[in-house]
């Protein structure tokens, strides 16, 4: 087998079509994870210790086991479950599987943001007699979220690179198209190289952007710690 530029160029348009599906899936998974991440934070602040403990370990469990197996569980095993079982299309299964997996990471980001808010801010909002809702929406979150923006951006890039896992349950995005092409013509390396290049082309500039953001926000943090 030798490298063929002809194949390389001919698969580019084909895989480019898959890029949009990869991007769409990334965004959907990310939004799901971002919203569901708050759920873990909410649970971890409940006043019932056993519940906190249980969900703490559940999050740890989800975080430290392979997302691929979780994906298979949702796609293959969920429909077989008694009562709750429903068949899911691959796209939805991927959003659920990857979304839940990464929500456990997002919750850690939120938590670090919340913990970075000075204790005096809580005391001041209590002293001003704000309601719980006002406290969170007006005082805590506006300060907790901005410093986490680089980290949140980072997870968007990380998830972008995890999304090809969905090809294993039949989501026809970039990787799947490449593998299909390979199976048909027994030319794998060229389409896979194209896929890799697309990933690089998108994730590297984004990573640079995140770096810039990080520097900006770190500087803010420095000033804060100096004061």
């Amino acid at each position: 087998m030798t490298w063929s530029w002809e194949v390389f160029f001919s698969v580019i348009p084909m895989i480019f079509k898959g890029l949009w599906i990869t991007l769409g899936l990334t965004l959907a998974c990310y939004l799901f994870a971002a919203v569901f991440g708050f759920f873990w934070v909410f649970i971890s602040r409940l006043p019932w210790r056993p519940v906190r403990w249980l969900f703490g370990w559940l999050a740890e469990f989800i975080r430290s086991t392979p997302p691929l197996v979780q994906l298979f569980f949702i796609y293959y095993a969920w429909p077989m479950m008694p009562v709750v079982g429903v068949s899911l299309n691959p796209f939805v299964a991927a959003i659920l599987g990857l979304g839940i997996h990464f929500s456990t990471y997002m919750s850690e980001v939120y938590r670090s943001g919340i913990e970075s808010v000075d204790k005096g801010q809580w005391e001041a909002s209590t002293a001003l007699n704000l309601s719980t809702r006002q406290k969170w929406m007006k005082i805590i979150l506006p300060q907790a979220i901005p410093p986490t923006i680089p980290m949140l951006g980072n997870y968007l890039i990380i998830m972008f690179k995890e999304v090809p896992l969905a090809s294993t349950i039949g989501v026809v995005a970039m990787l799947h198209i490449a593998n299909d092409y390979g199976a048909q013509y027994y030319k794998y390396v060229e389409p896979l190289t194209v896929v890799a290049l697309f990933f690089l082309l998108l994730s590297y500039p984004s990573a640079l952007l995140i770096n810039k953001l990080e520097k900006k926000y770190n500087r803010r943090f420095d000033k804060k710690t100096l004061a």
Binding site: L165, L175, V189, L192, V195, A196, F199, L200, A207
Partner: peptide, 14 residues
């Protein structure tokens, strides 16, 4: 910048 799963396939074929 590229994805592990893509790298894995790439190496196994290339």
């Amino acid at each position: 910048g590229t994805s592990l799963i893509v790298q894995l396939f790439w190496f196994s074929y290339a």
